[in-house]
């Protein structure tokens, strides 16, 4: 189907225009929500991290032993988190993931 080369073909030009129009639309209307949703998503993710791994911050966590098994799935996200917070190294003593 898409073996036609882009360029002079009228259909691909129309498609490009539509895509451009959609990007303008998204930029105007969806982008603000997108940022808000992203913020909310990250906030909720951090909150989960805090509740599940409160022991890392020195707060007793009765299920610390059971959330241990979640490390393998969450370690990359923890790394993202402190980078996002503007800290090149992990803020939690004893949890220097980098």
């Amino acid at each position: 189907m898409s073996t036609r080369r882009t360029g002079g073909n009228i259909w691909s030009r129309i498609r490009r225009r539509i895509r451009a129009a959609r990007e303008i639309y998204e930029g105007l209307y969806v982008a603000p929500y997108r940022a808000a949703i992203h913020r909310e998503y990250l906030r909720e993710r951090d909150l989960f991290f805090l509740i599940g791994f409160a022991d890392l911050l020195g707060t007793p966590n009765p299920v610390a032993f059971y959330t241990l098994e979640l490390y393998p799935d969450l370690i990359e996200q923890f790394h993202e988190w402190h980078l996002r917070m503007g800290m090149p190294h992990s803020p939690v003593d004893g949890f220097r993931c980098c």
Binding site: V30, Y33, R34, I37, H38, E40, Y41, E44, R45, L47, F48, I51, G52, V63, T67
Partner: peptide
């Protein structure tokens, strides 16, 4: 923890959609 995690996933899906 489960209900919090569920919320994370819902927001993650929303974020992916937009």
């Amino acid at each position: 923890l489960i209900s919090r995690r569920h919320k994370v996933n819902v927001l993650s899906r929303m974020w992916r959609n937009v």
